[in-house]
Design a protein around this nucleic acid. Structure first.
Length: 414
DNA sequence: ACGGGTCCTAGCGC
DNA sequence: AGCGCTAGGACCC
């Protein structure tokens, strides 16, 4: 099919309002491709959209299939404003969350511009049905196969074919489950085909999009009736496409964060039961306010292993803290005199008991911001020198290099 | 062997 | 007895 290659346009946008590479990689959407250095491309609502960013602007280019009918009006700028939720002032929200929560402040200084997308609900729903027991890399591959196999092909750019996301109707056929199994979806194949059938046949047209207009609790409850949709996936959809900024999806990562940094994991909330799940959401809503889900995604991104390069980058560019400071820190860790035990639900920094055990087993001091193997890998990818037997000092150097005065997270080999 | 859960069921307490 | 809640296992690659 012929393509109408569009021109580049731009709209003013600061980095504190949007950090494109973070937002497109932090596990909200799984379809954006790094099409060129600094460039991201995705098939979105009938066009192939490419984005890049500089200090002051977001640049965009849309490529449409040439339709037999009259040329459509190019609504790409409206699409972008909607998709990135650009009417929401993120900078102000960061200020509010930081004022309410010192732990948020500490994390957020290194992870600015992380905002919630306003995705298509159906794509969002199916993508997160895929997310169970899974990782971003494989989820992305699965979503890509789903689009390639079932979605309408828009065309080819730079030798790469782009397909739009398939509709419920395109996924409700009898062969869908088997096809998805053949594509490696595992037990999620049935969830997706069943959910597609429910949405296409047992719900009114526009039902899913219509959940944008009902309140959070009702939308959440409605989503739970679908197959493969539990509380966590329902919250992801509420937050990422149904305008429920207060929804806080609690997955294993957020559960870890809640235990490590917000005092959960003891007493009444020892394990992640339904009650604990709701208590965590309630705690964050009370702490951060109405847009708690937006705030949660900043901390979630800050903990993503894939974002370790942000920390590495800082290590490269900032001055490394002096050796004496390292030794002092290491000594403090060793004597254990910097341990803090916040009350449940209270704020403060606490050592994660699980990682303490692990690290002791491995003969490594407690508390780390990045796992050693992740650091090593990231260093390698940045062509930093990694000498044999030296890498265990990396995380210490990293911490020293950051402005973050988070002493608890330093570590050294015994 | 692990990874961004969901579903199902048995067992417990009230 | 019956319901609500929780823990544990299976599920695909």
């Amino acid at each position: 099919m012929a393509l109408a290659k569009g021109e580049w346009h731009k709209l003013p946008l600061t980095l504190s309002e949007l950090c494109l590479s973070s937002v497109l990689r932090c596990g909200q959407s799984f379809r954006w491709r790094a099409s060129n250095p600094g460039e991201w491309t995705c098939a979105l609502k009938g066009r192939i959209l490419t984005l890049r960013q500089d200090d002051s602007h977001l640049h965009y280019r849309a490529i449409f299939p040439v339709a037999a009918t009259a040329p459509r009006k190019d609504d790409t700028v409206e699409l972008i404003r909607d998709y990135f939720n650009l009417d929401i002032n993120l900078t102000k929200l960061y200020e509010r969350w930081s004022a309410a929560d010192t732990h948020f402040l500490k994390k957020a200084v290194r992870f600015v511009g992380i905002r919630m997308l306003r995705q298509d609900p159906w794509e969002n729903l199916v993508s997160f049905i895929c997310s169970s027991n899974n990782n971003i890399s494989r989820i992305s591959q699965m979503v890509d196969k789903l689009c390639t196999t079932f979605g309408p092909r828009l065309g080819e750019v730079d030798g790469h074919a782009y397909h739009d996301f398939p509709s419920p109707g395109e996924l409700m056929g009898d062969g869908t489950e088997q096809s998805l199994r053949d594509l490696g979806f595992g037990y999620r194949a049935k969830y997706i085909s069943t959910t597609a059938r429910i949405v296409a046949q047992e719900r009114l047209v526009g039902w899913l999009d219509g959940l944008r207009k009902v309140d959070y609790r009702d939308a959440h409850e409605a989503l739970l009736e679908l197959s493969g949709v539990g509380p966590k996936v329902a919250d992801c959809v509420c937050l990422m496409s149904l305008d429920k900024a207060e929804a806080v999806p609690v997955d294993t990562h957020v559960w870890q964060i809640a235990q490590r940094d917000y005092g959960f994991g003891r007493g009444k909330h020892k394990s992640l039961t339904k009650a604990t799940y709701e208590a965590i959401g309630d705690h964050f809503r009370k702490l951060w306010g109405q847009e708690a889900g937006w705030a949660h995604s900043v901390l979630f991104a800050a903990d993503l292993k894939a974002f370790a390069d942000v920390i590495i980058e800082e290590a490269k560019t900032e001055e490394v803290e002096k050796t004496t400071a390292k030794r002092t820190a290491a000594r403090k860790v060793k004597t254990g005199n910097i341990r803090e035990e916040p009350e449940e639900g209270g704020e403060g920094v606490k050592l994660d008991p699980a990682s303490v055990d692990d690290d002791k087993k491995n003969g490594v001091e407690v508390g780390t911001v990045v796992e050693r193997r992740v650091v090593r890998k990231a260093k390698r990818s940045l062509k930093l020198e990694v000498r044999e037997g030296e890498d265990e000092n990396v995380s210490l150097e990293l911490e020293g290099a950051t402005t973050l005065a988070d002493r608890v997270k330093r570590r050294r080999r015994c």
